[in-house]
Design a protein around this nucleic acid. Sequence first.
RNA 1: GGUCCCGUAGCUCAGCUGGAUAGAGCAACUGCCUUCUAAGCAGUAGGCCACAGGUUCGAAUCCUGUCGGGAUCACCA
Length: 633
Amino acid sequence: MEQHIRQALLAAAPELFGAPISENLIQFQQTRRDVEGDLTLVVFPFVKMLRCSPQEAGEKVKVWIEANIDSVSHCNVVNGFLNIVFKNTYWLNQLQEIQANTQFGLAAVNSKPTVMVEYASPNTNKPLHLGHLRNIFLGASVAEILRAVGHKVVRTQVINDRGIHICKSMLAWEKFSPLNEKGERQTPANTGQKGDKLVGKYYVEFDKALQKEAKAIMAEWQNGNFTDTPSAIEEAVLNFQKAKEGKDEKVQAAIDDKIKELAKNQTAILQEAKEMLVKWEARDPQVYLLWTTMNGWVYQGFDATYAQMGVSFDKLYYESDTFLLGKDQVMEGLQKGVFYQKADGSVWIDLSADGLDEKLVLRSDGTAVYMTQDIGTAIDRFKDYPDLHGMVYTVGNEQDYHFKVLFLILQKLGYTWADNCFHLSYGMVDLPSGKMKSREGTVVDADDLMAEVIDKAKTMTQERGHLEGLSATAREQLYTQIGLGGLKYYLLKVDPKKRMLFNPEESIDLTGNTGPFLQYTHARICTLLEKAAYKPCTLATNAQLKPEEKEIVKQLALFGSTLEEAAKAYSPALIANYTYELVKLYNTFYQSVKIVVEPDQELRQLRLALSASVRQVLATALGLLGVEAPQRM
RNA sequence: GGUCCCGUAGCUCAGCUGGAUAGAGCAACUGCCUUCUAAGCAGUAGGCCACAGGUUCGAAUCCUGUCGGGAUCACCA
């Protein structure tokens, strides 16, 4: 409709304004809630052309629109805003269309190019936590949104399954795991512990041992004993110790940290871990067996967590397969002059012309760094999926710089698709106590959190009743739907870009702008339609829509464009806000009129159709957020 | 220090491609279940949109600066 009026105004401009006008002069906006109107045209841009007051300009356009646009009932001009009121039949037709279209708002499947969406991408040395939840819910939701606007989507993750961190867990397990009566070390099978948790436990064990050993070394250094310390390190430590003199506490603490780093590097246990990594890279059979075994445990654990979260992937990449990729590309880039080599053999790119720094892309010993691997993986993915058009990387904003560099490098290497790569950068999740810190034990475990949220949902649902007639399994399923729905909505309703606060109490709220509130409305409509034995049919054309009803149709009509915006902005939050608004409008309507018990059959059918349309859009929108829509609750 | 992000009600967040009197939720207070699920609805109260300049018919929104918070600047990942 907006487009229609825009085109009509453009065509009529010479007649109306005395000259053709550019399209950007025609600015529409939503009409304020407190004035009459369905769409508002801003008239200020025309004032100069017409050489008159905003009021007069508005009146002139008003007369023209009323005479020439069919669906318009009438207009009013207030303060330079032309508020257009559409005819009742226009909205009735809209509703009729929405009701008849089960795919309302969605684009044709695979009508847009293939896009790969990466999310999760965990390390295999510890369990998933709250930060991962935001990442995964966000990525999974964006994938759904892109699909809904017509893209073919490949969901993926790259699993960081190799490196020093996993060697630490492996080593600690070998060193510290107690033996059971059969002489076996701890396994998920013989302890009943989830694999990722077990491996995570040994990662912590490693750190403890490391800290202890480092402390001992530091104490020796403090006493001036450097017998086991290489002279270069000794010199550095002595310099640091000297530098501490006369400095304030903060600076001293910072220097102590540096000394600690040196001490850690001198520990036998870290040396052992490094040796293990070297062995792993040489494919030492024993180390490899241990590695595959322990990673296997972790994957089983992750799979359980993903299943509970209700997310999945179409394609997995493992860092152990990809970490050598990219070297060829670097060599090629070197030939092309995109990169340059330093005397020590290391390869760099100079991005100072682009306002960035110089960045290492290959170590002097010829081994790959993170960037090397990412270059290789990106190129590889486009080989794996020849129809791939672009990629979305769901990664925290602490890596903003990394992705800026990565995309720039890909561009300079001549890959035109680099322009279609997007870093879906999201903010940290803070706790009321501040940042999550593993060292301080404030990390919120993903499994624990989900369990807690489901448990809370159970208690609160039981308090409300509405459970009669539901089987035990159906009840359990409902608690899960509510708990997880609340958690997902809580994490997704905030603009992804922004750092957000996770308040445990608010995350399990059922009232206000929450997942359960939306689910409740859905369930209420479901039982309502069931009671009414609702069937879609052609609506009477003479019914007069009440304002509450019209507001809902208006909001429903916005679903498609909201989806487009959400896809363009990679923001599930836009869907969340839209849906919340829709539900509020519906509840107002629900409280103010009779529906099933409405005696006038035409009115009743109209309101049922309205309810059914809201249910459908609501269910679709919740689905895009990964939130399930219960039939009753 | 360089670069980037953020600062809106007591709290958590919308609004930011410039447009009318800046909106929700939570918390507080008032009402509404002998009509379809009250996990709801209606209402009251709560604001120098961090601060200071600028651009313009018009700025929470754009530009510059200041202050405050965060991230990042490794031959780590």
